[in-house]
Write a protein that binds this DNA or RNA. Structure first.
Lengths: 189, 189
DNA sequence: CCCAATCTGTAACGTCCACTACAGAACGGG
DNA sequence: CCCGTTCTGTAGTGGACGTTACAGATTGGG
């Protein structure tokens, strides 16, 4: 079990994966070159390929890491908040913060990369399930269209990510979240 | 005036520019190769370069054409509708249709291409000016934050374009527009 | 202290890219 | 009918890309 012998890796795998994640996050899959990654990380191509695989594998590794760290806030809000309303409110207001945090790329990696359509659908379905649960249990009016509301939340998050990438301020994104939430149906009394 | 002599061009310049527009619209600037454009149009590279210039010029020509045709609906709504509310309502509902019209790429070219940040800002400022006018003339409540509302409209349009690219239906986009409009401030009576 | 195993840097591989040199074909004016 | 002019197709240019062959460096086990 474990490597029996051999020269030790000359770089911190997690640290390098983080730099790779930020590169893909900032520039997207296509615009990020392996040569650029070696320059950003100081790790030469053979070592990158040995540690992570080809460019596609580098990207999926970066996406996995993104979801486990920077993008974790969304599923956390859905898991930890009791109602859909509270979960979406927290998700969107935290998104305003996450999408404009200095020292990292702006916006959301998953919402920006065209090739991650599947992950976006998953996220939207999770929001829809949270809403549907509240409709079923009577916390939201019986007539509420859970799918429609989830699509609207998805649109808001995507719009916020796009605006963040174009340089929108944190306050502007908070206002977008607040305005969007004003379209939320009144809770059952 | 006019060319004095010489062989005539073997293709319809506008028709070819339209195919080029659709290619950039569908795949973006980077993912569109000149080789792909020659295949899509049947026009060889030297003729393309003679007629339009280099790849960057091809792209800006395509964007210009897009704004003059497919994307015209937005500025038309702002120009032709009397109130900001009516203009935005028409803009978003027509966007739902335009973004999902069969036989052409989905979503908006300007909202999808990262390099067109400037054009997006222009569009948002136009919406903001329309709203500010209604606030100044009393058609909207005096406390209305025109900028904040314009950013929200921009977020909605971007969200709709992104959803359209991921395959959202026309009905879903109409619902997003309707829900977003429910956040519009009540008009002054 | 040697050895098999693993990682490292150098330097290249073939492929695709945007772009163009060149020669010939099609045109209208004289 | 020739001529200058403009367009066209072929066939390349140099460069960037993702990926890897290879030889040397470094490790721990025996």
């Amino acid at each position: 079990m474990g490597a029996v012998v051999g020269r030790k890796r000359g770089f911190d795998r997690d640290e390098v994966l983080d730099q790779i994640t930020r590169a893909f996050w900032r520039d997207g899959y296509q615009a990020t070159s392996v040569a650029g990654l070696t320059e950003a990380t100081g790790v030469n191509p053979p070592s990158l390929y040995a540690a992570f695989g080809d460019k596609r594998a580098l990207f999926t590794g970066a996406v996995d890491r993104y979801q486990a760290t920077y993008g974790r806030f969304a599923s956390r809000a859905l898991d930890e908040e009791p109602t859909a309303r509270q979960a979406v409110e927290r998700m969107l207001t935290e998104a305003a913060v996450e999408y404009t945090t200095p020292g990292r790329p702006r916006g959301c990696l998953v919402l920006s990369a065209p090739e991650l359509h599947e992950l976006r659908d998953q996220a939207m379905r999770a929001v829809e399930a949270k809403i549907r649960h509240d409709v079923d249990t009577g916390a939201l009016p019986a007539g509420t269209d859970a799918h429609r509301l989830a699509v609207f939340v998805a649109a808001t998050a995507r719009g916020m990510s796009s605006l963040a990438r174009d340089g929108a301020t944190r306050a502007e994104l908070c206002d977008v979240a607040r305005t969007a939430l004003s379209a939320w149906p009144a809770p059952v009394p």
